[in-house]
């Protein structure tokens, strides 16, 4: 099943929940969402009980994706992080993820290895990011596969630098959809203001970006919500284990 760029760039905001594995992807699909976002933060928690997305390697992510696609027919957008290296690694990572069933792939502009923590995420040169996006696009076999460019460096290049990058990516048609991640509380208003005039989406980590209220009105065309599924799962598991403990103690 394919997805269209128009869905993610129109003024009708699309919500894409983050998923960690086949079970959560199935839940999201059954709830009727446009797509699910298999992202590094949720995957690394489900796979190795860590919170730094950069600890996963791309072949581990594609393993998870193939399991997801065994029983989830709906579109899955996949986080290819920083491309796990340079343009060369990006090419092969994207190729593997598309062949494993990704309907869309997100590449961010972080230095490899990408990090989840805002203070550990550093930006690469824009020219290197552009080269990675070109490699990613060339690696696609299916013209309907979508490329999402994720700009994570607002704290490094500021709202002005972000606006210039967005304009360049659009002018040269380097990605189907542009999203912004690792936005700090201080920069959030400026980034949302840019979304008023430009079709851009956002990646919000619902656990770490505590300043963002999911109910608040924003101008992003698309919002990827990461962390929610993992947090809910963890909480449910803790409650279940506590219930088992209570049962054991009662007996």
């Amino acid at each position: 099943m394919t997805i269209s760029a128009a869905s993610f760039t129109s003024k009708q905001q699309v919500i894409v929940p983050g998923v960690a594995d086949a079970q959560s992807a199935q839940t999201v699909q059954e709830a009727g969402f446009e797509a699910a976002y298999l992202n590094g933060y949720d995957v690394v928690q489900a796979q190795i009980a860590q919170t730094n997305e950069g600890l996963t390697s791309p072949s581990e992510v594609s393993d998870v994706l193939r399991h997801v696609k065994e029983n989830v027919a709906g579109p899955v957008i996949v986080d290819a992080q920083s491309g796990f290296g340079n343009q060369l690694t990006t090419y092969f990572v994207v190729q593997d993820l598309e062949r494993s069933g990704a309907a869309g792939i997100v590449i961010n502009d972080q230095i490899f290895p990408a990090h989840t923590a805002n203070d550990e995420a550093e930006s690469i040169e824009f020219s290197d990011f552009v080269a990675k996006l070109k490699a990613a696009k060339d690696a696609f076999d299916d013209p309907d596969t979508l490329l999402f460019a994720e700009l994570d460096g607002v704290k490094d290049y500021g709202a002005d630098g972000l606006a210039k990058r967005v304009a360049y990516l659009k002018q040269h048609q380097l990605a189907d959809v542009i999203v912004v991640g690792h936005v700090s509380e201080e920069a959030f208003a400026d980034v949302d203001a840019l979304a008023v005039t430009q079709s851009i989406g956002a990646v919000i980590n619902d656990v770490r970006d505590s300043y963002f209220d999911a109910q608040q009105e924003t101008h992003f065309t698309t919002v990827f919500h990461t962390g929610t599924v993992s947090a809910a799962r963890k909480q449910a598991e803790q409650q279940a284990v506590q219930a088992f403990n209570a049962e054991v103690e009662a007996n």
Binding site: S57, L88, F92
Partner: peptide, 15 residues
């Protein structure tokens, strides 16, 4: 079936 140019990642190597 690729050269040793960093295409094999940790997941593949460790498996």
């Amino acid at each position: 079936a690729q050269p040793d140019r960093g295409i094999a990642d940790f997941g593949l190597m460790s498996n």
